[in-house]
Every structure is written in structure tokens, then in C-alpha cells.
Simulated assay, not measured.
Amino acid sequence: MSASMRQPFPLLEIMPPVLNDVVLDFVWDQQKLWSLHLPVTQVSVAELEWHLDLPMWSLNGRPFVLTPKEVAQDPERFRDQYARTLAADTRFPLHLLVRPNRLTVLDGLHRLLKAGIEGRKTVLVKMVPPARLDDIAKVRTRS
């Protein structure tokens, strides 16, 4: 599939530049991601914790304004996200995209935050090679 066939991520124009090398520029399907047959391994929480400082979550309908670290630091103020974090099932691996310079979380940010809150040293992960991105991409609809 060519990149032009992928459904573009609709919030790219308002996304903060700090997320440019973290968030994919196209819409992907979570069920397709979860159905990829990839080996499970472990990665240290320390290697991934930089994600917790990124404004990945919405607040009051505004995207890209809340960091997971802010949620952990003020669970009373951010009750919904904190509850979602505590409910996350860390038995399921995170999905990480293998990029040239670092690993980035595709799916599992709440599980990563929970692992950090619980003081875990490692998390289960599945590494997604860039060659598999077409397998999870949503395709543009013809109009």
C-alpha cells in the first residue's frame, strides 16, 4: 500500500511538534494491531518513561493537552484518566514501533503509566517493525 492510500491522521495540523516523531501521520486500526502475530518480549520502563511527559491525552475535549505524568501527579483532578490507568491490564503487552533512534508506544500508554505507578522495572511488549505499518493502516475512503 502506498502512503497516499492511508487515511491521514485528522489532528496533524493541531498536534504539537513534540509529537511529530511519536504519533503516526495516519489512522490505524487497534484490532488490526492486536491481531499481528509478533513475539512478546520485555523492555525496561525507564527506556519508555519519556512518553509520560508528552501531551498525548485530551482534556475537556481539547486534544494534546494532558500528559500521563500530570495524571499520576494529580489523580483527583484527572479522575477519569487515572481510573482508566488503574483499570489497564498490564498482562497485555504494549505495542512499540521500532524507529531508527528509539522505540515509541503505539498502544499501551495507560499500561505504561500503571507499570510506573506500581514501581515495575519492565513491561511486556510487542515490537512492530515499520514494514508492518501497512497491515494496521486504515485506508482512505473514496468519495
Rank of each mutant, 00 (worst) to 15 (best):
L54I: 05
T85R: 09
D80H: 13
R62I: 10
L48H: 05
S35M: 08
E49W: 04
K69A: 06
R77M: 11
R79P: 04
P55T: 00
L59A: 02
L33W: 00
D74V: 07
P55I: 00
D74K: 09
A46S: 10
R79W: 13
T41R: 11
L59V: 00
P55M: 00
R84G: 12
L54Y: 01
P100D: 05
F64E: 05
L38V: 01
T90E: 14
Q81C: 13
L48V: 00
R62C: 09
N101R: 15
E47K: 08
V98Q: 13
R99C: 13
L54C: 00
A87T: 10
R91Y: 15
E49N: 00
T90H: 11
S44E: 13
D53R: 03
T85S: 08
V71P: 02
V40L: 08
L38W: 00
L33E: 01
P93R: 08
F92R: 15
A72E: 07
Y82P: 01
H95I: 10
H37T: 15
D89V: 08
D80L: 14
P39D: 09
D53Q: 06
L54M: 02
R62D: 12
L33S: 01
F78C: 06
P63N: 03
D80C: 12
W57I: 00
H95P: 00
T90A: 14
P63C: 01
L96M: 10
R62L: 11
H51W: 02
P100F: 05
A88R: 09
W57Y: 06
F64V: 04
D74R: 09
R77N: 11
Q42K: 12
Q42C: 10
M56E: 08
A88T: 06
L52F: 05
F64T: 01
P75M: 07
A83P: 03
D53K: 05
V98P: 03
H37P: 14
A46H: 12
L33Y: 03
